[in-house]
Simulated assay, not measured.
Amino acid sequence: MVVGEPSISQESLSGCILIVDDVDLNRLLISSYLSKGGFENLHFAVDGIDALEKIEQLNPDLVILDLIMPNMDGFEVCRTLRKQAIYQDLPILVQTAMSEPEERVQAFEAGATDLVSKPLSPMELISRTRIHLENRLLLRDLKSYQSRLTRDLEVAREMQKALMPAQNFLDHVENDLNVRILYQYESSDELGGDFWGARDMEDGRLFFYIVDFAGHGVSAALNTFRLHSIIDQAETIPSPEIYLSDLNKLLYRLLPTEQYATMLCGFIDVAAGTIVYSSAASTAPMIGRPGSGEVRLLDPAGYPLGAMEQATFERREVPFAPGDLMFLYSDVLTETPGRDDRSLEEEGLLELFRKSLTDSRTELSICEIMSGNIEQVLKRPYQDDMTAVFLRALDR
């Protein structure tokens, strides 16, 4: 190592360096400087065509490139490499005697990463080689980390999707409980905290719920798995308001400060023609009837789960006749900016629901129609998970 040079990792010293120059003496001089600097994995090419062949063979970590060469010059080598995605980030250190700014700009426009001036200074060459090899390793490590993170996030998103009811359960609910359920779920780029579910009760009622944890990321996802497990393990559900009260006390002890969830749950009783529900600050459920423009907006008032230990929740009952359709949704649909840069809010979403209910395309489900109408209005990408659930009482 040259005296006065900063320390460099052994991994950088062993990085693959391709020296491209048509003059034997220049290649020898560069390799001598780099060898004295501790670099040991040196390879050579005598012109641009040879360089491209060696790069394909070696996949080097750094190219030290002369610009003026026969057959193919350094400019063309740079342009050829930058057209290929695999070499977009390959450091190209150009050695040049050009002194005019316009000439140096040409080198950068062709794709050079950096320049080193001729006649070569050993200290400058070693220093720039060190910097670009270290950056190359850091970039490689970052890409590897991002790749692992992307895979892990995809696994987590698939696990979240697996929390949703399976199709065979939905078929059972339709055939045995006379409730048809359609839903759409889209995960955002980040992990979110949305999920919904349902359980058939022994007395023929259907218990349903929709949950949205505050925030995004790993903590929100972990909270969804935690709460889903708690809901799954519940042996009895006496009433929606008591159930929310019990969940609230449990989550108040489990969740860190400033973490909370909104939730709506209830029972659909097709035989009695009613929905009994309770809300923990959820989005407002909507009930309408396909073919009709009449839509009822239900009261969603309540305390978020986990925010206050002694919170109480209100029991509400509404009629739900055969043919009626209830729409549950996550707040991304009311809060995402539309194509006019204004969010739909509750009133705008209600109008979209009303429009969907009166759509004459009988070959499409209400879920498909509503999805299409939302797509026309809202901007993507959504900044949170999107959940839309439709539950319809059947007349049999």
Rank of each mutant, 00 (worst) to 15 (best):
V116C: 08
L125R: 01
P60V: 05
L142P: 00
I131M: 11
L120C: 04
H132C: 07
L65T: 05
D66E: 09
L142H: 02
E124T: 12
L115R: 06
L90W: 08
A85S: 15
L125K: 01
R140I: 12
S127R: 04
R104G: 11
S117Q: 12
L120T: 00
L81A: 02
K83W: 08
D141C: 05
S117F: 09
V77D: 09
S144A: 11
K83I: 06
D73Y: 08
E76W: 04
M72A: 03
L138I: 10
S127K: 03
Q106F: 01
E109A: 10
E103W: 08
I64M: 10
R130M: 14
A110S: 15
L62A: 09
E124F: 06
N71W: 11
E103K: 07
L120Q: 04
E134P: 05
I55T: 05
E103R: 05
D141P: 03
F108R: 13
Q57M: 08
D66W: 06
E134T: 12
E103G: 01
S121K: 05
A110E: 07
E102N: 08
L142A: 11
I64S: 03
L120G: 00
Q95S: 13
A110Q: 04
R140N: 06
L115D: 11
R148L: 04
L62S: 00
P122V: 02
L90P: 01
A97M: 05
P60C: 08
L67E: 02
Q88K: 10
F108N: 14
Y145I: 09
L67D: 02
S99T: 12
E134I: 03
L125S: 07
D114L: 13
R82I: 07
L67P: 02
V63K: 00
S99G: 05
Y87K: 05
R140Q: 09
